[in-house]
Simulated scan of single mutants.
Amino acid sequence: MLTDTAIRKAKPKEKPYKVSDSQGLYLLVNPRGSKLWRVKYRMNGVERKLALGSYPEITLAEARSARDAARRQLAHSIDPNFVKRQERIEAGIRASNSFSSVAQELIEKKAREGMAEPTLAKMRWFVKLLGSDYGKRPVAEITPQELLHELRKHERRGRLETANLLRAFASRVFRYAVATARAERDPAQLLIGALTTPRVKHFPAITDAVTFGALLRAIEDYQGDPAVMHALKLTPHVFQRPGEIRHMEWTEVDFGKAVWIIPEGKMKMRQPHSVPLSRQSLAILTNMRTLSGSGRYVFPSIRSRTRPISENTINAALRRMGYPKEQMTAHGFRTSASSLLNESGKWNPDAIERALAHMVAGSVRRIYNQSAYWTERVEMAQWWSDYLDELREGGNR
């Protein structure tokens, strides 16, 4: 049996030599003076060695404890070297993966799976909101208290919805980290109920026909970037989601069939959506084609034609026209259209819902709605654009 005194007295020789303890544990003394703990064992009839570390970093007592742990693994037919190798791999993975890198990996995975670009952009935005310092933290070391500290910053500024969305996003990142052996738990899950729940807010919208007509006249008089001008004019006619409009591509527009086909990757409900185009919509797009038809996007950014107009462009234009965010938003055009179309009493509510690309419960009914209401939707699109023209001219029917 070894003692600390015997270990200290073990001097290096010309060749490595062993100083045995018991039950396979020994100390390997090298010519240069290093003293390394080893455990000799047999697995499936084959002799193997397990490295435990060096003396004095690993004491005699610690070496014996590690030997005993290895013997318990062997008793259950578990190879200690395999366990150590797995632990080393997992430790390396944890140490080299920050929250931001894991989040980016998750975003790339979702992109390959077809997640809509607006949703991916929002996930990237969430990573930025959590901050660069937080993003550099090893994902396995982040505590619930640490995450709550970051979320409270947004809560104190009145951004209650943002704080809750950030918690939910962080939870997705942590769950992905657990699934890929970079973390052992989801600290964001433990914060459910810790944040203030925001009251549900509906997008501000103008639903009065006369007031909406005044808005249309303001849009007609708007002066600015041509892409923004045309996007503003088209939005009331097609009343699709702002992200879908600003990401519209020329390859999605069929002028011959008068239809805009939005691919499923851009749709919130992950289903392709066809939008009938009225004569007025086609005229707006025809004018825009002379300006951006050689590029990818119908409404390119003024800074780079390889990117669409920014997320807040339409809202910013509404503000410049004198419409505060409490009165009208880019998303509010959908509410305006839904309200005025339903008030007209001319159209089947299901056709209106389908035009808005709202999800219909039940796969059979969903398929039915996609086909059965197309003719009505085409008629409705033209009626709606004609109605908008009348409102813009100051009428109201």
Rank of each mutant, 00 (worst) to 15 (best):
Y26M: 02
A337S: 00
M359H: 14
A103W: 00
D221S: 14
I219H: 01
E117V: 14
G45M: 00
G265Q: 10
M229Y: 08
N81K: 07
F239H: 06
L148V: 05
E184G: 09
E105H: 03
K84P: 11
Y55C: 06
V360N: 04
T143D: 10
T313Y: 06
N164H: 04
K13S: 13
K40P: 03
R172D: 12
E326P: 09
P31R: 12
K109T: 14
T196S: 10
E62T: 13
L166S: 04
G295V: 13
F255Y: 05
R296K: 14
K122G: 09
A70F: 06
N369G: 12
Y41A: 03
F333C: 03
Q370H: 09
L195G: 03
V200G: 11
A140M: 00
A177K: 06
H273P: 05
E105M: 08
Q240L: 15
E311L: 01
H76D: 15
R320D: 11
P118S: 07
G33P: 02
S132N: 14
I262S: 03
R365G: 03
Y222S: 01
L148H: 03
T235S: 02
A330T: 03
L340R: 05
E108W: 05
S34R: 03
H273Y: 06
E108K: 15
Y373T: 13
S20I: 15
I58E: 01
S101Y: 04
E161N: 10
A283S: 07
G45I: 02
T207E: 13
S338L: 08
E161I: 15
Q327L: 14
T211Q: 14
T286L: 11
S34Q: 06
V19C: 03
P138K: 01
D350I: 05
A258E: 11
A188E: 00
L25E: 15
H76G: 12
P12G: 05
R72A: 14
T196N: 11
Y368A: 08
F99E: 13
T162D: 05
S292E: 08
A218V: 08
V228I: 08
G243S: 07
S77M: 09
G394D: 07
M359K: 14
L129E: 14
N44Y: 05
E108Y: 06
Q145E: 08
M380C: 00
F174D: 00
S274T: 13
S344G: 00
N81C: 10
S65T: 15
I58C: 05
D389L: 09
A209H: 06
S274I: 05
R397G: 10
R42D: 07
A231M: 07
R182W: 09
P187V: 07
A337E: 01
L285W: 04
V200Q: 06
V19P: 01
Q23Y: 11
G395R: 03
R289V: 11
T235D: 00
S100F: 10
A205D: 09
E141R: 12
